[in-house]
Amino acid sequence: MIESFLQYEFLQNAAITGMLIGIVAPLLGVFIVVRRLSLIADALSHITLTGIAASLLIEKRVTSVNELNPIYMGMVFSVGGAILIEKLRKLYKHYEELAIPIILSGGIGVGVILISLADGFNTDLFSYLFGSVTAVSSSNMWTVVCITIAVLIIVILFYKELFVLSFDEEHASIAGVNGRWIHLLFIVMVALVIASSMQVVGILLVSALMTLPVAAALRIASSFKQTIGLSIAFGEFSVILGLISSYQLSVPPGGTIVVIAILVLIMAILYKKVRNHLYVKGEPV
């Protein structure tokens, strides 16, 4: 395993990309979950798929374009979808969640049409759906490195604004926080992270990496910082173990990463139950 890791560049790419995604996806995931926006990640991943399909189609049909990296088109669609969701949420003030199925079904609908125009499913597409340890090129890896650095800087810089907005929007607006801009910035970051996660985890499972580690951390943490720390630790653990088992078992990493994240979640739930049990018992009545 270690030998082949040192030998093959693609494994190094996948490992580094995966580990970076393991940091930023749960980090943004914490804010997504506490703001009850979990499904936005799903909607954005579907619209990313549309972008990928469009990219594959252009590559196939437009002869002047030889090699088009689908990750970029995916990002464009994902960010576009994010902005569209925000517009729709404003349009349907009383039914904000409507924006999600609109974008989700729209994305998958257009995506399917584009995919068949591009002559249907192939292995390439399969790896975008469920992730792949072999598909990460070094240029993609560098894209993810840049996005990770940008996200970390922005989250650190706007940590208190993001936190106060998540906890209490009214209070944030009294404190003079420009909620609209911060939220837009946040949702664009989410869109970029989703588009860049697709090669390792796959489009269909990327939202899991944003929510499952957070769900586990919520059972245990007593502060927001702790929730972030534990979410990243759980995410990282799932990615690393998932990539190793994916390579060993020759199955897509999206599957193994998600299964491990779910096992972590079950452990966290059990841990809380056992701890509560002991605590109640230890307490003098």
């Binding site: 906890f167 007593s222 502060s223 927001f224 910082k225």
Partner: peptide
């Protein structure tokens, strides 16, 4: 919401601290 008491209280300082400061 996964926040500790002190984290909640500190949000009362957001307007006093201002942007780009920690």
């Amino acid at each position: 919401f996964p926040a500790s008491v002190i984290e909640v209280v500190k949000t009362g300082l957001v307007s006093r601290i201002g942007a780009f400061k920690f």
